[in-house]
Amino acid sequence: MRSLLVVFVLGVCAFGQKYNVGRAASADEIKATDQFMAPDGTGLPAGKGTAADGRDIYSRRCARCHGAQGQGDEEGPLVGGKGSLKTAKPLKTVGSFWPYATTIYDYVHRAMPFDNPGLLDANQTYSVVALILHMNGIIGERDEMNAQTLPKVKMPNRDGFVKDNRPDTGKKKK
């Protein structure tokens, strides 16, 4: 009876698994590791901020590379380039090119500031994101960005992307 029970328990543990290598992930460790966020707002953390709130942290942690007004300095600009995408010198910025506002949060949160990624807390990140959106004329200076409002921001180039429709070349002419 006892051995039967053991077999039964092992059988349940192994349900669907062929190799049973690795271990179950706990809800806590998933929560600690999962910082993904999707364009529908899934994964955005609690917190809030406005462009006005973001000016101080931006000037201290972002302006050196991206310029006081987001015009670019040591690194590329965050603003400008509207109407340039069809020209010989396209300027791809958050304002002219990025299709989703949630991407700004995700990227700032995971990768910025360059020399100290992850430094900003949620409120600071929402504030900096709001400032970048405001610099591009997409939201007002006092518009609050949070997990509900950010996914609703419609980026100017939201409809500027198309699916991969290759091959568009390579059919031999003969």
């Binding site: 069809k86 791809k92 990025w98 992307f161 198309v162 991969d164 091959p167």
Partner: peptide, 30 residues
């Protein structure tokens, strides 16, 4: 759904002459 990360929106998308950009152009052609 794709997460629309920085490297699949602002980068690694292929701007075309008409100003639209191809996205998720994964395969490297011959």
């Amino acid at each position: 759904q794709p997460n629309q990360t920085k490297d699949e929106t602002s980068k690694y998308t292929d701007l075309l002459a008409d100003g639209t950009a191809r996205q998720f152009t994964f395969v490297m052609d011959a």
